[in-house]
Amino acid sequence: MRKKKPYQILTFHTTSAAMAMELYCKEHGISGRLIPVPRELSAGCGLAWRIEPEEYARYKDDLLDTSVEIEQNVELMI
Rank of each mutant, 00 (worst) to 15 (best):
L34F: 15
S31H: 11
Y59H: 15
T66S: 07
R33N: 10
E27Y: 02
E52V: 00
K5F: 07
G46N: 06
L63M: 08
I51P: 02
Y7K: 03
T15P: 03
M19C: 01
I9E: 00
A17I: 00
L47R: 12
G46W: 01
S42V: 12
E22L: 06
K5A: 09
L10R: 13
L63A: 08
K3A: 14
Q8F: 10
T11P: 12
E52F: 02
Y56R: 07
P36D: 12
Y7L: 06
C25F: 04
L63N: 06
A48S: 14
C45P: 08
R33S: 09
R50D: 08
C45W: 08
D65S: 15
Y56G: 10
Y59L: 11
G29A: 03
K5T: 09
I9L: 05
P38N: 10
K5E: 10
I35K: 14
L23W: 00
E22N: 03
D61L: 14
R39K: 09
Y24K: 02
D62F: 06
Y24M: 04
A57G: 15
T66M: 13
C25H: 07
S16M: 06
R33K: 12
M21Q: 04
K5H: 11
A57W: 04
T11L: 07
M21N: 00
V37G: 06
Y7Q: 05
P6V: 05
F12S: 00
L34H: 09
G29C: 07
T66F: 07
S42C: 04
Q8P: 00
F12E: 01
A48K: 14
K26V: 02
R33I: 01
I9H: 05
S16G: 05
K60N: 07
R50E: 15
A43L: 03
D65L: 14
G44P: 07
A48G: 12
R58Y: 13
P38V: 02
R50L: 12
S67R: 15
M19A: 01
V37H: 07
V68A: 09
T11G: 11
P6R: 09
T11C: 10
L47G: 03
L63K: 03
R58K: 15
G29E: 02
T66K: 15
Y59V: 10
